[in-house]
């Protein structure tokens, strides 16, 4: 199966503004990934506000890796929290694993976003190369950009599995639960995705 390059609907002005803000803050260099504070998940003592403040950034990052641009990722995450609130209320009653629920919502919504983009692409002239977000173009090193470019060319499913495996560090069982797949499918998808990625990286100039 061949993946078409993704169009990234990021407004250049917005990206440049964000970049300037970061440069002004002195954050333009390599930023270490902060580990989100651990939550007492499953004890039932956290409410949706606590979860929102603790997990929002991490979920936005996950969504960015799936949909490429920050505004869409924020929308996806906000919708996930809203769905959680509507379904389980502010106290998250009757929910054992709210983080798993949120992750599932984010991944599913990201897939819908990618599907909508594919539908839009079928009505507009295709672009030969994917357009990375402006801040990525400036902030990331060339080798990282190559990897992310290759990642965008994978199928949606392969991309999801790869991101959940290599960034979220989920096990095969957790990925299977998140995506609603069997463990074997996750394993084979990850293997094929990684192979395709390595192939594209070798092909890259």
């Amino acid at each position: 199966m061949s993946a078409t390059p993704l169009l990234v609907p990021v407004h250049p002005v917005q990206g440049i503004r964000r970049l300037l803000r970061r440069v002004a803050d002195g954050r333009a260099g390599a930023v270490p990934v902060p580990v989100p504070p651990a939550l007492d998940v499953g004890s039932g003592c956290e409410d949706i506000d606590t979860l929102y403040h603790h997990r929002r950034l991490e979920l936005v990052r996950l969504a960015v890796l799936l949909v490429d641009d920050v505004p869409t990722a924020e929308d996806v995450v906000q919708d996930a929290f809203t769905a959680l609130y509507r379904r389980h209320g502010p106290r998250l009653a009757g929910l054992d694993n709210p983080e798993g629920y949120l992750r599932r919502c984010v991944v599913n919504a990201a897939r819908s976003v990618l599907r909508r983009r594919r539908t839009v692409r079928s009505y507009v002239p295709p672009r030969t190369t994917p357009a990375p977000p402006p801040e990525e173009e400036v902030l990331l090193r060339e080798e990282h950009r190559e990897v992310l470019d290759a990642l965008r060319r994978l199928t949606h499913r392969q991309r999801q599995v790869i991101v959940l495996r290599y960034w979220s560090n989920l096990s095969e069982v957790e990925i299977a639960d998140t995506l609603g797949l069997s463990r074997g499918t996750v394993k084979s998808t990850a293997s094929r995705g990684l192979a395709a990625l390595a192939r594209r990286l070798e092909e890259a100039p």
Binding site: R22, A30, L62, L65, F81
Partner: peptide, 24 residues
């Protein structure tokens, strides 16, 4: 792959996000 994913994720910080608005 891990390094690239981490670098891309780290490029998104709290300063890039909209003001927080919990659903409640």
């Amino acid at each position: 792959l891990r390094e690239a994913l981490e670098a891309r994720a780290a490029s998104v910080t709290y300063g890039d996000l909209r003001p927080p608005l919990p659903p409640s």
